[in-house]
Simulated assay, not measured.
Amino acid sequence: MTIRHTFRTAALGAAALSAALLLTACGGTHTDTGSHSAHGATATAASHDAQDVAFAQGMIPHHQQALEMARLAAGRAESARVKDLAARIEKAQAPEIRTMSGWLKSWGEQPPMAGMDHSAHSGMSGMMSGEDMADLEKKKGAAFDSAFLSLMIRHHQGAVEMATTEKDKGRYAPATKLAGAVIQGQSAEIAEMRKLLDSGE
């Protein structure tokens, strides 16, 4: 009797332990499932399309030419306001070139090289030809200021046009956001440059 009682007690204890382990395992499985679901909801891959690639590949050389024009102002412009504007253009657009180049590399695309031949992009909206740039380099003083403002207005208008297309048709959120910033910033600079031209400063 004693041996039979001992076996029964042991069997009951084992059953209770098994039940406890089963409940713990179910609870753990439920917790793991919840965490996997949450992870899946947040792991959304960023996507882009051909328009985003075209925007970055076009805007990089466009910005590079604007920087080239802006850097001419330091030694040639007469107006302090033109020099200030040129410095602001350089400060804004140089980081944007780095940002767009980074996007292209992450997408497996080749960023346009700096120091390109202007004739290769002269058909792009607002871009200066090699002759335009050579003519600007020859000018100094008030003549430079007037030519710089006129050319940069046209250049900015081209950038705004390109950015508007990206904002309307692009898919990559950081690119459409940058396009919006280009539209806002360069539209304001166009208005500023027109006032400078009209005032003759």
Rank of each mutant, 00 (worst) to 15 (best):
L22V: 12
L22A: 13
L22P: 02
T24C: 02
H30P: 00
H30G: 04
T31Q: 05
D32F: 13
D32K: 04
D32P: 00
H36D: 11
S37K: 13
H39C: 05
H39R: 12
A41I: 10
T42G: 03
A43M: 15
A43H: 14
A45Q: 14
A46Y: 10
A46Q: 10
H48F: 15
A50R: 15
A50F: 15
D52M: 14
V53G: 04
A56K: 09
G58S: 13
H62V: 12
Q64E: 12
Q64V: 06
Q64F: 00
L67Y: 03
L67R: 07
E68W: 05
A70V: 01
R71V: 00
R71G: 04
R71N: 03
A73V: 02
A77R: 03
A77H: 02
A77C: 03
S79R: 01
R81E: 08
R81H: 00
V82M: 03
V82H: 01
K83T: 02
L85H: 03
A86E: 00
A92Y: 00
A92Q: 04
A92V: 03
A92T: 04
Q93A: 00
A94N: 01
R98N: 09
T99R: 03
M100D: 11
M100T: 11
G102T: 06
W103D: 06
W103R: 06
L104Y: 05
L104H: 07
S106A: 13
W107C: 11
W107T: 11
G108S: 07
G108W: 00
Q110A: 15
P111K: 11
P112D: 06
P112G: 00
A114N: 12
G115D: 10
M116Y: 11
H118V: 04
H121T: 15
S122V: 11
M124Q: 15
M124P: 12
G126P: 04
G126R: 09
M128Q: 07
S129E: 04
M133P: 05
A134S: 10
D135Y: 04
E137P: 06
E137L: 08
K138N: 07
A142W: 00
A143Y: 11
F144A: 13
D145E: 13
S146P: 06
S146D: 13
S146W: 11
S146V: 13
A147M: 15
F148I: 14
F148R: 14
F148C: 12
F148Q: 14
S150Y: 08
S150P: 09
L151V: 10
M152I: 15
I153Y: 01
R154M: 08
R154A: 07
R154H: 09
R154Q: 03
H156I: 10
G158K: 10
G158Y: 10
V160I: 07
V160G: 03
M162P: 01
